[in-house]
Design a binder for these strands. Structure first.
Ligand SMILES: [Mn+2]
Ligand SMILES: [Mn+2]
Ligand SMILES: [Mn+2]
Ligand SMILES: [Mn+2]
Lengths: 218, 218
DNA sequence: TTTTATTTTTAGTCTTGTCTAAATATTATT
DNA sequence: AATAATATTTAGACAAGACTAAAAATAAAA
């Protein structure tokens, strides 16, 4: 149907797009480690195929069509991630690159049977929701640690960054999905946090706080 | 490492090559539904990468390197086929096209864990042997039905053609791997056979006899 | 052993997806 | 409002992989 490249662009736009706002050429280029000129070319192509709306010099947003397509790719990506962790003993920091390849395999039956094999999971190993066959998925109530205040507490329900580097950092401190976290203090100078996790106190930089999603308690 | 195209060429040459004989440009082109000129281009590229030996106007054969590579692709292809049948409820005639895509996924860990999950199977759903991590696999003693004579009997251990069309034909007559088959008669006129399978007599054309592998009894 | 038929290669073109460098548009700053 | 800085697009090039048509080599037939 669509090429691997087209699919990767569609997915990227989906992830960058908030609501119905336009996503800029440069944002896409940066995220995809490609050049702005390449993005421009592709945006024209996606517009031709009615997958994105493209307004020169302003940016692009997915059409209904493109959105549906993105959700299906994301469904595949996340189901494969669950498969790798649940069935093939991958760690949560090892799955991303492989899923990046597997998400482009074309077979309706394959992905629906995989879904069944895994017991129709609702979340991937990073806490992200998995769309069902029809593209429906739960939107989660979650807040970035960086936006919390002293005293707030909750449990880790997601990570913004799924890179191996970041996830290994969390592993090192035994922080995983479900871990209970409390904000002990916030340093005004560098916006760093002091948090409590696993009965231990931990200093985390703003950058780390920016990648942890909590579900607040009460 | 290698592109999907390169891998498909390597696999095709592997399948066409008998011993150390050269495979002709046209044979490859026919098998791959491509043009001879495209094959020539690719053979040069494979030779440059030391994956094949290419003698202009004569043909090509895999190098040691290319052979190793081919065996790994075939390992992946067949393991994925087993996975699809064993874990995802695919029929043996549905797996080929999907495995054709999956065989190109790059991840050592993925394929070795898949192997483990499946219990280190020795054969794929079509009776073909599955190479292990090191590329070793059993060579099977099998004979085409078309080369047998009246009275010969054996069990089906493989099929030459894995197309959905052919496999569905076998399904229709309840012929599967392990089915016991006896040659009742051979018609000299059109080389067709009369065989016994599942306590029923069946007339099969030469073309069908040419795609069934038996392991002879005693 | 010529001549003919077939196979293979070469030359040139096309598409997809990428890049660099230059041109243009937009945004920010004086 | 003019200028500087930044973002975006265009123009032109390139690599991979495919194709067609023509040329060259090999094999088959007369
Ligand atoms: Mn991808
Ligand atoms: Mn994920
Ligand atoms: Mn393939
Ligand atoms: Mn097979």
């Amino acid at each position: 149907m669509h090429s691997v490249s087209e699919e990767n662009y569609i997915k990227t736009i989906y992830h960058l797009q908030e609501g119905s706002a336009l996503v800029s050429t440069n944002e896409i280029a940066t995220r995809m480690n490609t050049k702005a000129s390449s993005v421009t070319d592709m945006l024209k192509k996606l517009a031709d195929k009615n997958l994105a709306e493209y307004i020169p010099y302003r940016g692009a947003r997915l059409t209904e069509n493109g959105w549906t397509c993105a959700v299906q790719i994301i469904r595949k990506h996340r189901l494969w991630e669950v498969f790798l962790v649940q069935k093939l003993n991958f760690a949560w920091d090892e799955v991303h690159d492989v899923a990046e390849q597997l998400e482009h395999i074309q077979s309706r039956k394959l992905i629906n049977e995989l879904d069944k094999l895994l017991g129709y999971p609702k979340r991937d190993p990073h806490g992200d929701p998995i769309p069902d066959q029809h593209g429906n998925f739960e939107k989660t109530h979650k807040t970035l640690v960086s936006q919390l205040n002293k005293g707030d507490r909750g449990t880790l329900v997601g990570v913004m960054d799924s890179s191996s580097q970041f996830l290994k950092y969390l592993d090192k401190h035994q922080i995983q999905l479900g871990t209970s976290i409390q904000i002990l203090d916030r340093e005004e100078f560098d916006q760093s946090f002091s948090i409590q996790a696993n009965d231990k106190t931990l200093q985390i930089s703003e950058q780390i706080a920016d990648n942890l999603y909590l579900k607040l308690q009460e």
